[in-house]
Design a binder for these strands. Structure first.
Lengths: 338, 338
DNA sequence: GGAAACAAGGAAAACGGTTGCCGTCACGGT
DNA sequence: ACCGTGACGGCAACCGTTTTCCTTGTTTCC
């Protein structure tokens, strides 16, 4: 409750402390040469009025707003969140505030946001999205630096930070090989989806390096549990034997796991299972808990924010930067020692 | 790429159009009385320089920033997102931009954000969080209006918009009664969690209105699938017969569903099953698809934002406002007609 | 033909802070 | 008595925009 008090201005503070505005400013910012007693008097007055300098007025002078815009090109989802959080974290440490703009897959809306952000004189922008595909740059010749996170810009001169999905897929295969599996199947999302293609290609390539190949062509479908269950049916109907399945997502892996159990195959004894995304909801509920590849999105967001800060300070990092993935081992690929 | 062009000022525009700054301002804002030709000339100059008025300078004069702060008291999660989105949507329609601040359960961090937001002269704030419990007000005598969304303020004079969880639980029970079930069990989250208590109490009360009661005391545990599976074991070990289970979350329901099937009970023929949250990932992957109660969080966020806008315009809505839940029927409570 | 009304646009004062420059005062040295 | 020197703070310009008031011409009307 409590009725709304007006914002105090520095003039109020100066008056209360019995000094001029300029002096008050210097006292609060540690500039100029003032008697310690004066400085304290001004500070006390500011405290008493709960004075907070008007950031807009201040930036009018400094030319910087200590503000960045974060634009999600499509709706905010499971993947954008950690990126946002990582970025927010890194930026907060640099005392910057974040404008959140949800593009909702609407180019008009997106352009509107870019305009608003520019009129608010953000020091920079981060663009993110739900898929890892390249997208058209958000604008040309923008007066502030832009970093693309998770999603990447079609212009190779722009700065993009993307997960190293190929590296992640290689790690998955290497882990399966390391636990002694060689007859590996791959079940993943829709083929028109960039992530599905990249991961499948990398897995195939990594196997080839050891003179191996997938026991069957990659099964492209959807990202859901339902598809995982269906795919197991397809796999069992075929004549290829397999002792491991590398799945394009944890949801698929979960479906695969359930279907394998229903078909009487034990995980991991008969079939080792590895997912992708390391989504706790799935990895924990899976029976047994699921080994997975973590995209490290929060780190990616942080990294993107750091590059943006650097660019704002005059040291841009143009180009595409791959952010490493991480293997998280659980019981679906290893029987715990008794 | 393209090198960063400086931001054009209205003085640049005025010079290019050959008028004074005042006139340029009037031309762009449709104020004053100007010849149509002059107006066009200025507009053209602005376009040519891609001029966007400096929002900071502008708000210096108007006293409004058309900006609000959104503070999540704990980490942004599955529940905050839709609230954020709904709010962002409603605010965007009012041409307001949103500062995102992630409090991370840290009161210090939270207070820091409040200060920053005030110094940025936001027109208002929305506070949200991961739980529906009441929390200490974010500040006393703040100079701008505050609305609590999802979470609520302990001060009853503050404006809070919360989901009507009790109403949702009643709807769940009513639906089960409507499909002919009377021997209902309830499995839910931890008892120290406000949502779990409220929902259990409302379900019990609604049954009592029909002279019924739960077949066993509510089973309090965790919000996870794992707990859902365990709870079914407990339920089957007891001697109470049941023909329906109302679960405190979709994750619990999913676990319950899997365990029931494993135990040879058919859903929905033998046991009807209803969840809470209407989380697509769970409701869709569940076999069969899960009936659930939708908290309508996006609507809640929108509603909170609208109240904030009203408060900013001088019409506050103090007090606690319950936002209705919605029943979404799927096959776990109804056998589809052939 | 002259006063009055009106259209068009310029000059300047805000808005809230920051900062460079200058004036004043006390003090010490010659 | 005079000058030089720091220490301390005030004054005013400036950041970019909006808005109020004025100053011009030009019409209009009696």
């Amino acid at each position: 409750m409590g009725k709304l008090e007006r914002h105090a201005t520095i003039a109020d503070v100066a008056a209360l402390a019995g000094v001029s505005v300029g002096t008050a400013s210097k006292a609060l910012n540690g500039r100029g040469s003032l008697r310690e007693e004066t400085r304290m008097r001004v500070r006390e007055a500011a405290r008493q009025l709960s004075f907070e300098a008007n950031a807009g007025a201040r930036s009018l002078h400094s030319g910087r707003t200590y503000t960045v815009g974060m634009i999600t090109t499509d709706t905010i989802g499971r993947f954008s969140i950690p990126v946002l959080m990582g970025a927010e974290d890194a930026l907060g440490a640099g005392e910057m505030s974040v404008f959140l703009c949800d593009g909702r897959d609407d180019p008009i809306r997106e352009q509107y946001y870019v305009k608003t952000l520019l009129s608010r004189r953000v020091d920079g922008m981060i663009v993110t999205g739900r898929r890892t595909e390249a997208r058209a740059p958000i604008g040309a010749n923008l007066p502030v630096p832009v970093v693309y996170a998770f999603i990447s810009s079609a212009d190779p001169g722009d700065c993009s930070v993307v997960p190293d999905e190929a590296g992640g897929a290689r790690k998955a295969v290497e882990h399966l090989l390391a636990v002694g599996r060689t007859r590996i199947a791959h079940i993943t999302g829709p083929e028109h989806h960039n992530s599905a293609r990249v991961r499948a290609a990398a897995a195939t390539e990594r196997l080839a390096e050891d003179g191996l190949s997938l026991v069957a062509p990659p099964l492209f479908g959807g990202w859901s549990e339902v598809w995982g269950r269906q795919a197991v049916g397809i796999l069992l109907a075929g004549r290829a034997e397999f002792d491991a399945v590398f799945c394009g997502s944890d949801q698929i892996a979960r479906g695969v796991c359930d279907a394998l159990r229903a078909a009487g195959r034990r995980v991991p004894q008969d079939v080792a299972l590895i997912g992708f995304d390391n989504w706790d909801v799935m990895t924990e509920a899976c029976q047994p808990p699921l080994t997975s590849i973590d995209l490290n999105l929060e780190g990616l967001g942080r990294s993107a924010a750091e590059m943006l800060l650097a660019a704002i300070n005059g040291s841009p990092s143009p180009g595409r930067h791959a952010h490493p993935c991480r293997l998280v081992v659980r019981e679906s690929t290893t029987v715990p020692l008794p």
